[in-house]
Design a protein around this nucleic acid. Structure first.
Lengths: 353, 353
DNA sequence: AGTCTCACTGCGATCGATTGCAGTGGAGTG
DNA sequence: CACTCCACTGCAATCGATCGCAGTGAGACT
C-alpha cells in the first residue's frame, strides 16, 4: 500500500515543520532544543505514520552504526551459543545489534568475513576466534579498531579480553583426580595455537609437577581440533602409547566425548577403568552417559562481560585495555571415580618423586 | 595512522579518474562499461589503498543492504544453531549477511527487534518464531516485506515456509511404539499456538485412531513451552492422571528430556517401564542417558532451504509462495523398548476398538 | 569532408538523517 | 523605547556510493 516507508521529511511535512526540527524532536539527546508542544506533535505524527529512522542514513552521517561484529568459529559448537547470547543480551540493552559470523577456523574466511563487517561499518568487534598469533587482529588494532577477545586471548598485548580462569580450572581437575587416588593421569590437550589449549596444557604440567607426578611425554597428546572426532583419534593414540593410564584430563568437553567414545569402543568402562574430566560444562553435559565431570565456565557471563568491555571501549577508546578473568569451578558428576586397584605406577613407567 | 578509511573518491583521485568511473570499475556488473586498462589501474589502486566499499552509503542509494533479518526464539535452544548455521551458509554464498535476534517468545520484544531490523533496512526476513496467529507477520506481509518462515508456519496463507514433515514423523514414532507392543501411549504435546505443536498433536490423535487405539483425554498433556522444565511438569501431571501408560511421544527432545527426568525421579525406568520418543534429534541426543529415540529433522538443510527461498523471493517478489516440506526420519536408540508385560489395557481405562 | 556510431568518462542529483550556523520573534531590562 | 538575550526553528552542507544523462574523441561510413 504505502509504497516506500515514511522518512523524516514525511513526518516533518505532516506536522508542518522542517525535517531538522523533527530530527531533534525524535532524538532524546536533542529533544530539549525543541518546544515541548512541537515535540509532542512530531512524536505522535511519527508514531501515526509508522516512522522508523533509517539506520543507514544515520550511520552514514554520524559514522556510528550501533552494530558490533561478532566472530565465532562455529555456531554449532555448543560452547558458543551461550556466549553469543550473553553478548546479544548486553548489546541489546544498549541499543546495539550483533553481526554474527562463523569463520570455521579458516583464516581466509575470517578475513573475508571481517572485511564484510568493516564494510558494514561495525563500531567494534568481539572476537571468539583469537589465535595466539593473529595478524588480522594485529592489523585491526594498529588501525585503531575497537576490539575485545572472548574465551581466548592473543599473545599480542593491547587487546582487552574476557576469559575464564583456565589454569585454576585445570588445577581443580587434576586435584580432584589425585584426591581419588589417580596418579597415571593423561592429558588430551587442545590445539596449542590457541590460548585455551596452551594455558590448560601448561597448567596440567605444572600441577602434575607440583603433585610430584612425572607423566611420560606420551601421556600428553595434542588434539588437532576441539572436536569429538579429534578427541577420539587422540585417545586412540594415547591408549596405544600409555595403556596404563587411569584418568584423562580433556582439553574440553567435546574432546572428552571423543575419549568416552573410544574408551567404550575399546571395551574400557568409564569411570570404572578410566576417569574422564572435561572442560566447559557445555549444555547437557549432565545428561550424558556417563554424566560428565567437567570444569564449569560461565559462558553467558563471559559474553555479557565482553560486550560490556567493548561498550566501555567505545566510550573511552584510550582507556587501558583490561583483561577480565572469570572463575571456573569443577563440577563432579559420573565420569570420575576412585582409581582402580591393581595398577601399580610402575606399569606406566611413572615414578613418584 | 591512516585516520579515516579510504573512500571511492580517494581511489579515483589516486588513479586520476572520476569516482563514478571507479564505482563502475569496482562493480562486476558495470565493469564492462569501463576501459579494461583503466579498470585494472582502479582495481589495483583500490587494493593498494585497502579500499572497502561503505555498505551504508551503497544501501542508502540503492535501498538494498544484502542483509537478512533472522528471528529465532532463543539461540541457546539447541534446535536453532544448526538452522541458523544453514541460513548463514547459504546467505554467505550469495554475499548476504544474517542479522540474528532472539525474541524469547515475547511479543513486545519481537516487535522491537523487528523494528530495529527494519530500521537497518534488512532486505527480507527469515522467521523461526512464527505462531499460528501472528499479527506482526500479517502486517509485514501486507506491507510487501519479503518473508519466509522456517520450522514453523503461520495459519495465514501467503508466506513461503520450510518445515519438516511433522505428521509423518509423528506417524513413524507412533508406529514404532505400536510395533513394540505399546497401546497405552501418551502424548506430551508442544504449545498448540505454534504449528509444530498443533500438527504433531493432530497427527498423534489421527495415528492412534487409525491404529484402533482410543487414549483417554488425560493422556494428552499440553506443555506450556518447548522446554525441559515444562516437559517435566507435564509428565508429572500425566503420570498422576494416567499411571498406566507405557510409552510417551514427546513434542520435542527437550520435553522428552523433562520426561526422562521426571520418570527417573518417580523411580520408573526408561525404557524398561516407559518408552520415550523425542522429536528433532537435537545435537548429542545420541549421547544422552539413555540415548534418545527421536525423529530426526534436517535442521541445517531447513536453514539452507529457507535462505534459498528468501533469496528467490527477493529476485522474484511476485512468484507464488511455496512451502518446502523436508522429510523426517525416526532414529531408534535406547529410550524405547518392547512394552512391559502385565499392564492390561484395562488398567488405564483404554479400550481397543 | 561531413555525419554517425560507439566506447568511454565526467557531471551532478540522489538516498535520509544530522548538525553548525543563522534567522526570527517575544520576553525582559535599563 | 531601544536593546539584549534566549528559546526555538529553518537553511543547507555533509556523509559515500550509484546512476541517468550528457559530453568527448576516435574511427567508420557515405
Amino acid at each position: 500500500m504505502s509504497g516506500t516507508p515514511p522518512t523524516l521529511d514525511d513526518v516533518a511535512r505532516a506536522v508542518g515543520v522542517h525535517k531538522a526540527t523533527a530530527s531533534r524532536a525524535l532524538n532524546p539527546a536533542t529533544r530539549s532544543q525543541v518546544n515541548p508542544e512541537t515535540a509532542r506533535r512530531i512524536t505522535t505524527a511519527a508514531r501515526r505514520l509508522g516512522y522508523v529512522p533509517n539506520t543507514l542514513a544515520r550511520g552514514l552521517r554520524t559514522s556510528r552504526t550501533t552494530a558490533i561484529g561478532v566472530l565465532i568459529p562455529d555456531l554449532t559448537n555448543p560452547l558458543f551459543p551461550p556466549i553469543v547470547r550473553g553478548i546479544q543480551d548486553r548489546l541489546d540493552a544498549h541499543g546495539y545489534t550483533a553481526l554474527l559470523v562463523n569463520t570455521d577456523g579458516d583464516e581466509d574466511r575470517e578475513r573475508a568475513q571481517f572485511s564484510d563487517l568493516e564494510s558494514r561499518r561495525a563500531d567494534g568487534f568481539i572476537v571468539a576466534t583469537a589465535r595466539r598469533v593473529h595478524p588480522l587482529l594485529a592489523e585491526a588494532l594498529a588501525r585503531g579498531t575497537a576490539l575485545v577477545t572472548v574465551n581466548r586471548t592473543t599473545d599480542l598485548p593491547g587487546i582487552p579480553a574476557v576469559v575464564s580462569d583456565d589454569a585454576d580450572g585445570t588445577a581443580q581437575a587434576v586435584g580432584h583426580l589425585t584426591a581419588l587416588g589417580h596418579s597415571l593421569i593423561a592429558h588430551l590437550a587442545g590445539p596449542q595455537d590457541v590460548s585455551t589449549g596452551a594455558v590448560r596444557t601448561q597448567a596440567f604440567r605444572h600441577c602434575m609437577d607440583a603433585a610430584g607426578l612425572r607423566p611420560p611425554p606420551e601421556s600428553v597428546v595434542v588434539c588437532t581440533a576441539y572436536t569429538e572426532q579429534a578427541g577420539r583419534e587422540a585417545t586412540r593414540r594415547l591408549l596405544g602409547a600409555c595403556p596404563g593410564i587411569t584418568a584423562i584430563v580433556a582439553g574440553n568437553d567435546l574432546i572428552a566425548l571423543g575419549a568416552l567414545a573410544e574408551l567404550a569402543a575399546q571395551g574400557r568402562s568409564c569411570p570404572r577403568d578410566v576417569s574422564v574430566v572435561g572442560f566447559n560444562d557445555m549444555p547437557f553435559a549432565d545428561r550424558f552417559q556417563p554424566p560428565l565431570t567437567t570444569v564449569r565456565v560461565p559462558h553467558h557471563e563471559m559474553g555479557v562481560q565482553s560486550a560490556q568491555l567493548l561498550l566501555e571501549r567505545l566510550l573511552e577508546p584510550q582507556a587501558l585495555p583490561r583483561t577480565v578473568l572469570l572463575p571456573a569451578r569443577l563440577v563432579v558428576r559420573g565420569s570420575t571415580a576412585p582409581a582402580p586397584a591393581g595398577f601399580p605406577d610402575r606399569a606406566a613407567g611413572i615414578t613418584r618423586a
